[in-house]
């Protein structure tokens, strides 16, 4: 599904990624761990097409070269990024944002736009799966939301848009145990043989709930080590000091 070969990325004349290789197949869950400043968030930004990076190397997503696509085209093709810091958009009702987003993705796929009533039914259903109060959907997007509410809202959007590749950028940071479980349940319930996850995290605790197939340790803009789920537990004990 995703094939990254020798990816380099620079921002403000600083090299962040230095020849990163990664392959993700449908049905797989990959976790990226690594110390601060190792390039984890940059990888998420570059994959989603954020402006400002100079990149080199190949990123293929289902046979399409992602370098040719804009941010929105990547999103429409099924790349979803759950933001570490979801943005507040004052004056924009959450429901309207979600519907506009869903329709943009549907339109790009050549599907018909969803009408308001069908949408409201759908979103209520998805929200209740995540234990999100309906009232929350008529509030302004992320404005005055708690950290946990913002993260749940990201997972809600993921479940609504049904992406092929979901990138979770430190979705677990700032979550209490209950919220963490809800987020993890959201991911687990969406996971199937056709979609994949790239989970960026600092801590093992999220991986206690979402079992990864692979854990990669990022160091100096490269994958320094790859292992199975047990690698996370090992890292919890030893830290990153021995990996370079």
């Amino acid at each position: 599904m995703l094939s990254i070969q020798n990816l380099e990325a620079r921002i403000d004349n600083k090299n962040i990624l230095n020849g990163l290789n990664l392959n993700i197949n449908p049905g797989e869950v990959h976790a990226i761990m690594g110390p601060n400043g190792s390039g984890k968030s940059t990888l998420a930004n570059v994959l989603s097409g954020k402006n400002g990076y100079e990149t080199k190397g190949l990123i293929k997503f289902n046979e399409t070269d992602l370098n040719d696509l804009s941010t929105e085209e990547r999103a429409q093709k099924g790349i979803f990024l759950a933001f570490q810091y979801p943005l507040e958009i004052p004056g924009v009702n959450t429901n309207i944002f979600l519907r506009t987003s869903l329709n943009a993705v549907r339109k790009a796929k050549g599907e018909k736009e969803i009408d308001t009533l069908t949408f409201l039914k759908l979103i209520k259903e998805k929200a209740s799966e995540l234990g999100i109060d309906e009232k929350f959907l008529s509030r302004q997007l992320n404005v005055g939301f708690s950290g946990g509410e913002k993260k749940k809202n990201e997972i809600l959007q993921m479940k609504l848009l049904q992406p092929k590749l979901s990138i979770l950028d430190e979705t677990d940071s700032g979550l209490d145990i209950d919220a963490l479980r809800i987020v993890a349940d959201g991911v687990n319930s969406y996971k199937n043989k056709d979609n994949a996850f790239l989970i960026i995290t600092h801590y093992q605790r999220l991986l206690d709930y979402i079992k990864p197939d692979f854990i990669h340790v990022l160091s100096n803009g490269k994958i320094a080590k790859t292992g199975g789920a047990e690698l996370g537990i090992e890292l919890e004990k030893t830290g990153y000091a021995n990996i370079s």
Partner: peptide
């Protein structure tokens, strides 16, 4: 805000839709 635009783009909205959404939010009152 560039980050707001990026957030909207990441949800599949093109630049014009994103601007329209943000500006309409700004004008809502």
């Amino acid at each position: 805000n560039e980050d707001q635009l990026y957030y909207c783009n990441q949800r599949g909205l093109d630049q014009e839709e994103a601007v329209s959404l943000i500006v309409n939010g700004f004008c809502k009152e």
